[in-house]
């Protein structure tokens, strides 16, 4: 009978011992957190943010992927950015994508606030006087809750927080890998967006053709500049655009105490069917450059 066969089949599927232990630990140790799944906007921003990182790295001598190590199984990790020459990057990306595709795992953490993020990763994250206390941007769609989501799975711990500032969406995120870069496969949710062809023409133009319907396309690095913060941290600003895009994206990346920070600013487009809000490139008249600069300079570089 089908019922017996089905029961037998499903009996084999059970929560792993590791997962049980992890969940129990969190149930007993972190009662106040509330998990959440962010909808469209967030995933798209993750993609764009990381895409921005790769393109930003191109301006400093090669293409980069965030990597890191996980000492002693602790979540306290040191992130690093590995740069590739253009002719090596495509092969490296393809190799990693294959590993990720095989694993099909993503680990992502959406913190309710930076304190929650800090609690989770066990490492000090920079305070930000410009952003602390500001309203978090809340998409109107399926957002019943707001809190911290921590995947049980190793790989990337991605801390993310979106803010609404002067009608713009400002995203602040940190990327922390918990897998050795060269060795165990890197696992991160943005890779699927990069599946498919990847081309670099050597002139600052990178073509990503994702399998999705929104994140692929041709993106062009228009401008890049660096600024040095009071403690010596180098912040790399990038301005980049896409074909058939009116406006541009702005991003800022820096590494502080081994943690990669990535900030991006977008215009908010409301009333998108099935999504609610989405983001769009901004232009100089929107004040996005001022917002991004204030957010970066709001970090406690000292």
């Amino acid at each position: 009978m089908i019922q017996e066969r089905y029961k037998k089949m499903m009996e084999r599927e059970a929560l792993s011992g590791e997962a049980k232990a992890a969940i129990l630990e969190r149930m007993e140790g972190r009662p106040a957190r509330r998990p959440v799944r962010w909808p469209a906007l967030i995933a798209a921003c993750l993609c764009v943010a990381l895409l921005g990182t790769a393109i930003a790295a191109a301006a400093t001598g090669g293409f980069g992927l965030w990597g890191g190590t996980q000492p002693d199984g602790d979540l306290s990790v040191t992130a690093r950015q590995k740069l590739y020459a253009e002719d090596e990057f495509s092969a490296a990306l393809q190799r990693d994508m294959a590993a990720v595709k095989k694993s099909g795992v993503a680990s992502v953490c959406y913190p309710a606030d930076w304190q929650a993020a800090r609690d989770y990763v066990g490492i000090p994250l920079l305070e930000n006087r410009f952003l602390d206390g500001r309203e978090t941007f809340m998409p109107s769609g399926e957002m019943p809750d707001h809190g911290l989501h921590v995947s049980l799975h190793p790989g990337l711990v991605y801390l993310y927080r979106p803010y609404e500032v002067d009608g713009l969406l400002l995203t602040v995120s940190t990327g922390i890998f918990t897998e050795e870069y060269d060795g165990a496969p890197i696992q991160g949710e943005w890779y699927p967006f990069w599946w498919g062809n990847h081309e670099a023409d050597g002139d600052g133009t990178v073509t990503f053709r994702g399998e999705d319907d929104g994140a692929g396309g041709v993106f062009r690095l228009d401008d890049t500049w660096t600024e040095t913060m009071p403690d010596g941290t180098e912040v790399l600003y990038t301005r980049w655009s896409g074909d058939d895009v009116d406006g541009y994206w702005l991003g800022a990346d820096f590494v502080h105490d081994g943690i990669g920070y990535d900030l991006n600013v977008f215009e908010i487009v409301r009333g998108v069917p099935e999504i609610g809000e989405a983001f769009a490139p901004c232009g100089p008249e929107s004040g996005c450059e001022d917002v991004l600069r204030q957010a970066v300079e709001g970090f406690a570089f000292e």
Partner: peptide, 22 residues
Amino acid sequence: SYLGSAQDAEDVCQTVFLRLAE
């Protein structure tokens, strides 16, 4: 049964029981 992925199912498990713990 919904998701066809053990990893996603583990995440759902966590979500459910953390909600209970709250």
